[in-house]
Simulated scan of single mutants.
Amino acid sequence: MSTKTDDPISRKVSFIHISDTHLGENKDFILYNQNTYQKTTNLIKAINSFSAPVDFVIHTGDVVNEPTKASYELVKDIFSSLNHPILYVTGNHDYPEHISWLNSSNQSGFDLVPLTAGSYHFNYGHYKVLSLDCKGSPQIDPHGDFGYLQEKDLVWFLRRFDDDPKIIFTHFPPVSLDVPWIDREMLLFNGERFHDTLLKYGNNVLGVFIGHIHHRLVLNKDGILYTSAPSPICQFNISPLDQKVAFDCNVPASFNYITLVNNNILIKEITTESP
């Protein structure tokens, strides 16, 4: 008989969720009047000084601002100082092939199984994990697209691991966030179909982790948990009255700390004392 200690269901899995670092080609790149290299450095220092157990870090996209080789080389360099394994998801500012290169070159030790485009899945403990690449065409940017290939991968993943606890990483919010400008300009095209697919096939989906909106947010829709991570560069406004984008760059380094145990999920906001 298994004890509680060696029961995989009762074993804690903890990871850190970050997003939208928008690194440039060099250390002097400025976005929203902020040095993205310095802001990301501050975030990495905050993560490294965090003393709780961390199994891995997930970055849910917009790793760079322009998808050039020099930008991704800088990503590889700066995150080499991170004390934990890191995995990346494709954002609308990223190229899938560059994200695949980062994931294959960071020696994280994960057995990533590629799907179509830049999507992949892997196991961690008894949890099944999907990273779904929903980057759309330039014509619909900054929206993402839940198209035929994405739906095919999602349905396969949900049906293949039907009874297993599952988590999903993607960049774009699939459903309305009750923020007028975000709902108009930033959502995943066919996102309601994404949500309906989870309802139809998504037995035991513990959460969907997103980026793109540069702000921390938690939403439960029809029993599906959606949560986003803040950007270290700036935070977009998310008031239900906001008709156009505004942002606050006077923000401290912060991240989400996620704990999975007994097929339950706990999300904590970890924030440094000053910007």
Rank of each mutant, 00 (worst) to 15 (best):
L23P: 09
H212I: 02
H171A: 00
L158N: 02
H212W: 10
N190W: 00
A253F: 07
A246M: 03
V155Q: 06
D133R: 03
E269Y: 12
I233N: 08
D6R: 14
I9M: 11
F189H: 14
L43V: 13
Y226I: 02
I224T: 10
L225W: 01
I238H: 09
F15C: 02
G202A: 10
H121R: 01
N264M: 09
N33C: 06
H84K: 15
N190M: 08
S2A: 14
G207S: 03
Q243Y: 02
P53S: 10
D55A: 06
N92F: 07
L149T: 15
R11C: 11
L225P: 03
Y37S: 12
N26V: 04
N237V: 09
I16V: 15
N190G: 05
I86N: 02
H84R: 09
N263Q: 08
T170H: 03
N237M: 09
A253G: 09
Y201C: 08
V261L: 07
Y257A: 14
I210V: 15
S228T: 15
S10V: 07
E66A: 06
F247M: 00
T60A: 06
K268L: 14
Q235G: 10
L130S: 04
G144L: 02
P85D: 05
A229Y: 13
E66L: 11
D164W: 06
